[in-house]
Design a protein around this nucleic acid. Structure first.
Length: 352
DNA sequence: AAAACGGGGCG
DNA sequence: CGCCCAGTTTT
């Protein structure tokens, strides 16, 4: 069976690339030496930082044998300020090997390119696809971000399994006939359009096929296992009672417990006593339009989530009169069980 | 699987 | 100023 490849993504990316790509010096050549040099310089390095280094290197060592013949000190000096200096040492070691073993002609085969010092999976794929249009998909940080969003992939990118999943998906999606163009397009798209923070999805040509966008979860991708740091949060809940009435509010987007209900909440940066809390700017608006406010401490609950620990304090507040913003829902005390609440809030409610 | 490797951007 | 970034080699 000859399954046809889905090239919709390729088409979107390449069209976007042709219209939006930056004009960079290494984009006006198919010389594998120049491509290699640019790719090594751009490892862990932003384009605007590496740009002048590429120009210096290609001017001083326009051919691989000139790099091979240079003093290491001279090469390192030219690399100075760019960081990760093993890249420069490996670069020259590889140049010397190319002169010795390949007669100064840059290797043509992916497996040979991959053997060069300082060239891993990403760089080998970049070199052979861009220089020779060989069908090897690049997977760099941009690709992780773009693919994880478009396909809403929950596999963490920093796990062994995740790397495999992304490498296979990238290879499957690769537009083989336009490998170099497609690879450059997806990376440039990640660098300029599908950026890590606050991407402009409203003007994105891929938004219609982007699953993360459809789910309003763009900012959650790519997922990382990481040493996920646990964040401490301090929730002060107020169970405001006015006769047989109490108040709830629906939680919004971009935080835990989306669309669940909870008691009126004041979140603080650290644990505060009720006296400190009453002086806090976030506390005041809640009881501005209230009379005869009596606050009673009820209990403290430590609630542990995978990524945050919530130190919650519950207070019961009796008022003879109160007016709250319309986001606060006034309900009958007996109806509270009709509303979906977090486990934390439920723990408080069930023991009243 | 995890650490080491540098410098820059960001809040 | 601490935290994040992200390919390759080394441990």
């Amino acid at each position: 069976m000859n399954m046809e490849k889905d090239l919709r993504l390729s088409s979107i990316l390449i069209r976007w690339y042709e219209a939006n790509k930056r004009d960079l010096p290494w984009r006006n050549t198919s010389d594998p030496y120049a491509i290699w040099l640019s790719e090594v310089i751009l490892q862990q390095t932003r384009v605007d930082q590496g740009y002048s280094y590429y120009n210096k290197f290609i001017q001083k060592y326009p051919k691989v044998d000139m790099l091979a013949m240079a003093d290491e000190d001279e090469v390192l000096k030219l690399w100075q300020g760019l960081g990760y200096y093993s890249r420069a040492r490996n670069l020259q070691a590889a140049a010397r090997l190319i002169v010795k073993d390949y007669n100064g002609v840059f290797p043509r085969q992916h497996k040979d390119v991959l053997k060069l010092k300082g060239v891993g999976d990403y760089t080998a794929a970049a070199i052979v696809s861009i220089s020779y249009n060989e069908p090897y998909a690049v997977v760099d940080g941009n690709v992780y971000r773009v693919l994880s969003r478009i396909f809403a992939i929950n596999e963490p990118i920093d796990s062994g399994k995740g790397k495999k999943v992304f490498a296979e998906l990238a290879q499957e999606l690769l537009d083989d006939a336009n490998a170099g163009l497609y690879n450059q397009a997806i990376m440039e798209f990640g660098a300029l359009q599908c950026v890590p923070v606050s991407p402009r999805c409203d003007i994105c040509p891929a938004s219609s096929i982007c699953l993360a966008y459809a789910q309003n979860k763009v900012a959650q991708y790519p997922k990382k296992a990481g040493k996920q740091k646990v964040r401490n949060r301090y929730f002060n809940y107020f169970d405001i009672r006015h006769g047989e009435s109490m108040y709830l509010r629906k939680r919004g987007d971009k935080d835990i417990w989306q669309n669940l209900y909870e008691l009126p909440l004041v979140e603080t940066e650290k644990e505060l006593t009720i006296e400190e809390l009453q002086k806090d700017e976030k506390f005041k608006p809640l009881f501005e339009a209230a009379s005869d406010v009596k606050i009673q401490y009820i209990r403290q609950i430590k609630h542990v989530l995978s990524h945050q620990i919530i130190y919650a304090i519950f207070y019961k507040v009796e008022v003879s009169e109160i007016r709250l913003e319309k986001e606060y829902l006034k309900i009958g005390v007996g109806d509270v069980d009709d509303y979906p609440v977090s486990r934390l809030v439920h723990k408080y409610l069930e023991q009243l």
